[in-house]
Design a protein around this nucleic acid. Structure first.
Lengths: 138, 138
DNA sequence: TACTATTTGTTCGTATGTATA
DNA sequence: GTATACATACGAACAAATAGT
């Protein structure tokens, strides 16, 4: 089965077109949270692409925090994390960044999850997972 | 010249070891902001690695916002952006995420730069570049 | 428990295209 | 205009983790 949705001659690279296709299906709910995407060889064969092209598309989605990939299992749509709230008091400030690989694993975070650093007026600082966290002033 | 700093038999993959090496040199200042890293073929030859392995290491550093890569020019250490401040007033809240590819380019942001979304109490919302922006309450 | 099949992870090689110096 | 350097893409091989039998 060949689907004509990827145009190798298009301006946009094939792996980005493929990422666009899956992103649409994920955000639209066609792929529900926790569900598994088709395996890389399956997608490659269906769209007439090499496996590396498929893997690059998956890497894009991981970097955006839409999916996670587990070796031996597959690529899964990420389940929304428990919502948290962090209060920013007078004199506090917050900054944001993408953690380094080691830091991310040390915090137990998935790819595509930025970290929020809260600098308290007292001098201390806290790290919070960037997804699922809302910053508010009380 | 062969440097014996990458161990193919190590637990950690070669591309992560290589990323670690460059990350250290960047954060330590050995590579100053705006300076160019050695070309991919050069690094590959120096460390006895394939070019794709080098490219994966560079992709790691890009995702962390440490470098940018320009086709035809090379990989450059990112220059710190102009600091900005965003005020979070009573009833406002803020969330953070890694932008999608299209959104990132629409905002003119580099890879590895998360976005801050400020939800105003009035109902409007603003997007701010995640690097260089400090959230404060005043 | 043990084995097998499936699936992703890593790495190298090759080729071609495109942007920059 | 040429050389350099990165971007994309396919193929191949083996390793490692998982799932199911």
């Amino acid at each position: 089965v060949v689907r004509m949705t990827i145009d190798p001659a298009a301006d946009r690279p094939a792996y980005r077109q493929l990422a666009d296709l899956f992103r649409k299906q994920i955000v639209s709910g066609a792929y529900r949270a926790g569900s598994r995407l088709p395996s890389e060889p399956t997608v490659a064969q269906q769209y007439g692409l090499g496996r590396e092209t498929v893997r690059r598309a998956m890497a894009v989605l991981r970097a955006e925090g839409l999916v996670i990939t587990v070796q031996g299992e597959g690529t899964l749509v990420r389940t929304p994390a428990q919502p948290r709230r962090v209060r920013l008091g007078p004199g506090d400030w917050a900054t944001v960044r993408v953690p380094s690989d080691g830091e991310r694993r040390g915090l137990g975070l998935d790819e595509g999850v930025p970290v929020i650093e809260i600098h308290r007026a007292a001098g201390a600082s806290e790290l919070h997972p960037g997804d699922s966290t809302t910053i508010f002033t009380g």
